[in-house]
Every structure is written in structure tokens, then in C-alpha cells.
Computed example of a mutant assay.
Amino acid sequence: MKVVAAMSGGVDSAVAAARAAEAGHEVTGIHLALSRNPKSYRSGARGCCTIEDANDARRAADVIGIPFYVWDLSDRFHTDVVEDFMDTYAAGQTPNPCLRCNEKIKFAAVLDKALALGFDAVATGHYATVRTSSSGAIELHRAIDAAKDQSYVLGVLDEQQLRHSLFPLGDTPKPQVRAEAAARGLLVADKPDSHDICFVADGDNAGWLREKLGDRAPNQGGEIRDDATGEVLGEHEGTFAFTIGQRKGLRLGRPAPDGRPRYVLDIEPVSGTVTVGPRERLAVDQVSGDRVRWCGAPLAAGTVLAGDGVSVQLRAHGAEHRAVVRVGDDALVVDLLDPADGIAPGQAVVVYDGTRVVGSATITATHRVEAAG
């Protein structure tokens, strides 16, 4: 096959490209230029989206012996990922920009361009596996290395996209990938993984949003209130600086009467009210979502998924929660048999049947566990 290998400049994508080439595919390495101004995104060897990363990717392609190009997708990235990130925070929700990047950039814009140029597939360094079922359906499954599994952020891919996707690392633990990179002479073998949002230069999400949103922010400040009493505990400069479950940076004027820390429970962007309370009030037992994406044949409205193998994941590296999933018209309602803490609208709920990814949705609402008594 003719394969485009998306090379971020990190160790995973370099080894994935090397494996694709070694498997006999005709591989071309590409690096995505995602910033209109390279200085506007973060710098340093952080593993994604910097000038240093582009150079690392080029050097890795040279070692592997494959052609290498840079594709400029900065306008598409800004519209579909950065603007979406800002709009979602401005609405009082918590987005996942990496998931949106996979949906809109790596497996939409890149794959569409690759297919138009005559390539057959896109290979990436994601930790996940693609399998063909006995019926011939293409399925997305968790990676062997549970600690590195990235199937959650790939839960937005449909079956057609999966048919043209290669994940060469899905069957390998991360330490072995680094050892293989060193053995292949790839200089990125010891390069640290990236964990921060690539377009927030210093990791300060609140400061970045304060600067970028400007007049688009729904409010320029508001009150922090106690969930139980309604008492005003402090003030803030904008709801975009908060997310559900946040503990640090609340700057409350005095401690709670019981001496326990408070957490953000609710964000109301129009009034600017941020509600805080004890940790146990973070627990939710139901989430609702829309913008459903199926990793296979769509499930009909009215379908109920239940049983020992049915679970959901609510964060990129979060735990699995046993669940009952009810399918509506482009919507899901998920009853959590294992309640979860600090879940915010804007995040994704990804549905699993065993190791197989069934699909995903964007969380629109949560229901808190009722307090005992």
C-alpha cells in the first residue's frame, strides 16, 4: 500500500513510520504545520507542534529512508481545533482539543488529502488496534499497553476512516517502542512525551484564554458561591478560567466551616457564577451526550447496550465505568453503574464493548448522585 505516515517529531510516530516501511508499504512521511505563526505555539522538545518537532520528524524520516514533506493545515487547525477550544470554554464547558484534532485534522483533513493524492492509508503512532471481525467489519480496539491506550481520543473515527488507518504500535508496550527507536538509530528514542495542549505556549490555559477571548468572553468576572448555602465566597475574572472538578486556583477568601477543600461543581457563563462545594458533590451517575460518532455500523435509536462488557471512558486516561447506554437520535444517555467524579459538559463519553470502541458523544449534561438522606 501507499501510506502517509503522520510524523509529529516524537518517538511513537517515528517508530510507527519505520514499522510501516519495514512491512513493505510505500511510505511517505509528513509533518503537519499547525500554527500560522510558529512562535505563537509552544517551543522546546515537547513532542508536538513546534519547529524543533518538525526538524526531529525530518531527521527520523532520513534515518528510515522515506520521503518527507510538511503539509500546512494551519488555517484548518485554527478553525476546527483552536476556535472550537475557545468557544467551548466560553460556553462554560471543558473541551478535549486532542480528540477534536484527531476528528477534524488527522483523520479528516489529512486522510482526505492523502486519498486524493492516491495514497491508501494514514499511519500514526497512536496506541490502539484495528481489527477485522468475522463479518468483515472494521473495528477499533484498545491497545495492549493499557497505560498508553489512546482509543479514547480515536473514538470519533468512523468505519470508513478506520479502513484507511494504520496503528502499528497497538500491540507493543511503550518501553519496547523506545528500545526499538534506539536500536533503529532514531534520535527521538529518549524524547519526552507531550502532555500539554500544543497551542498553549506555557501550559497556562486560563491566561491564554484570557488573552485570546477578549470581548468574546461571555463575562469579565463574577461570583464564586457555596453550593449548600448560596453564600458568596469570592470573585473571579472569568468563567473560562475554571473547569468542573477544579480545586486549585479558586482564591476563596476563607476556608469552609468543616475545613475541607472545595471543588468547582458548576459553571454558569452567562451570569458568571461559579459554584463550589465538597468533593462528594462531584459524583455523577448519568451523562447525556450529542454529536454521536459510531466506530462501525450506527446503532438505531432505541437500542440499549448493557451487560458485563459494556463500559464507558470519560477522560483520555481515565478509568472504565460499567454502564448502561441508551441510544437516541444523534444522542446518548449513559447510566453509570460506577459513578464518576468531576465530569464536565464538553468532554467526550466513549462507549466500549469489551476492548472494542462502539462510538462516542460529546457530553451535554450530567446528573449528580443524590446525597444520602
Rank of each mutant, 00 (worst) to 15 (best):
V156R: 04
Q161K: 11
A371N: 09
A183V: 04
Q286P: 02
T50N: 03
L233Y: 04
A179T: 15
D353V: 04
F77N: 10
G47P: 01
I363Q: 00
G272L: 14
L32M: 15
D335L: 01
K106H: 04
R368S: 05
S311L: 08
G307V: 14
G354K: 01
S271T: 14
Y352D: 04
D330L: 06
Y263K: 02
D84Q: 10
R100G: 11
T124G: 01
H367Y: 06
A371I: 11
D84E: 14
G136S: 11
L314W: 01
D338K: 12
S74F: 07
A300Y: 07
D145C: 12
L166M: 15
F240Y: 02
S40M: 04
A361L: 01
D227I: 01
I51W: 11
H317R: 08
L117K: 11
V15Y: 08
R293F: 11
G309I: 09
A146Q: 13
F85G: 02
V153T: 05
V15R: 06
D338C: 10
D341Y: 13
P192S: 13
H25E: 05
C48W: 15
I224D: 03
V287Y: 00
R225G: 02
G29E: 03
I51A: 14
P345Y: 00
G136V: 12
A181V: 13
D56I: 04
R59Y: 08
V351E: 00
Q286K: 07
L305F: 09
R225I: 03
R254G: 09
G296P: 09
D190Q: 15
D335G: 01
E223G: 09
D56M: 05
N96Q: 08
A189K: 07
L187M: 15
T79V: 13
G214P: 10
Y352W: 08
G289D: 05
E235D: 12
A90E: 08
G207P: 10
G328Y: 08
L233N: 01
R281F: 00
V63G: 06
K106D: 03
G342Q: 13
F119N: 01
I30C: 14
